[in-house]
Design a protein around this nucleic acid. Structure first.
Lengths: 222, 222
DNA sequence: CGGCTGAAAATTGTCAACAATCTGCAATTA
DNA sequence: TAATTGCAGATTGTTGACAATTTTCAGCCG
């Protein structure tokens, strides 16, 4: 019996190239923390693990280097990047500007259905806050901001934003701090969603930017 | 700012890897238009041209794919990307937001020496405008905006901005339009530099954003 | 004449081997 | 003992060959 739900592994393998697949795989390994930050990545090990030769692995690592998830030293190997506080600050600078843009656009374009989806996620975050489920809250928080940038309807903006977000994710992996203030953070989310519901693009932009600013402040506290 | 001699080819080859070198080389080939947009890139040809095997070429192409200068189709090859008007519009959306940020930061941080450098480039652009030297004006214009983002003092912002700018450059390669309005464009530059000289970050940000908006409008006219 | 078929050529995808370089450690020497 | 040297193992860098796939084009049929 065949599972028709997933777009079928066959099609995935046919459309995406092998290096592309392992690129996504390695990215997950990094973002999940299984490949510790700062550590060297052994090409042969990965090749063995994925059951292929080193060629595709090297191509994947080259792509990951371009997206700044790894850095490469000639004849020494590629390392999982360590994002410093200073660089996280740089990223936040850019992110604040982009969040304002995202807020404006999403307030202009969000459909009623999309609005309901966002409200649902915010409600789930409330539940996670009540249950003190930090992991769940983080996952939902990521999902929420992913939805926002998607609903902004600008593919290039999405790409740019995701790239920066990955850098921030990498930073948090260094010393996974609690950060605290879930309730406060979700209060800000609610205000954003309300502004979107009112189709007030200026206010949404301002609120989402401020949310980024506060998020940066919470990072500094930890 | 003076270019302090090239850091010697030896050092370059020792620090940068072979794929990294050819990546920069291919990027130049694309941005200079020598590799026409939309055309397929032949790996063997490039390998022959640069005197190496296909391995490093493939790695370079993967990196270029990640930076969206080429797209890759499985078993068919990689193609120089064609940037549509719609995508150029998307890029401009992001660029406007970033230009405002750049303006703010540069107004806060620019040193007197940097200010003089910027004024010098603007003067050169005036000369190029008088001589109707379009090519020269374009080069100086690129240089000017590169200086601005550099002087903003945020490396990640610089990376992000340059990536988007390359996309726009690729778009212009499709049908290299004159666009017109050099004099107008440089008038805007002058206003920006004046605001920087006054260390008025809010005004500089607003002006630089508006400059991007006008630039987009000029693109649409052509 | 136009479209189909299929084999040859061209091209990409992957691999395994070799060369170059780095790392760690033991032996040597002052 | 501390520093240095040299060797062995491990790892990355690059290559050429082969497999898989696509493209091209001549021949054929309607």
């Amino acid at each position: 019996m065949v599972q028709a739900a997933v777009p079928s592994v066959l099609q995935l393998v046919q459309s995406n190239s092998l290096p592309g697949l392992v690129q996504a795989e390695i990215e997950q390994l990094i973002l999940s923390g299984e490949l510790a930050v700062g550590r060297r990545i052994n090409e042969s090990d990965l090749a063995l693990r994925f059951g292929m030769s080193r060629g595709p692995i090297r191509e994947a690592l080259r792509a990951l280097e371009e997206s700044r998830l790894v850095r490469s030293e000639k004849n020494r190997g590629v390392f999982v990047r360590e994002v410093s506080v200073a660089e996280a600050d740089e990223i936040y600078d850019v992110r604040e500007a982009l969040d304002q843009l995202i807020g404006q656009r999403v307030a202009e374009r969000a459909t009623p259905e999309q609005l309901r989806d966002m409200q649902a996620v915010v409600a789930e975050m409330d539940a996670a806050t009540g249950a003190h489920d930090i992991k769940c809250y983080h996952a939902l928080n990521l999902k929420f901001h992913d939805m926002l940038v998607d609903f902004a309807g600008n593919a290039r903006l999405t790409e740019t934003y995701r790239l920066l977000t990955k850098g921030l994710l990498l930073f948090r992996l260094r010393g996974l701090q609690d950060g605290g203030g879930f309730a406060v953070s979700n209060t800000e989310h609610k205000a954003v969603v309300e502004a979107i519901a009112a189709h007030d693009s200026v206010r949404t932009g301002r609120l989402l930017r401020r949310h980024a600013v506060e998020s940066r402040a919470r990072m500094h506290k930890a």
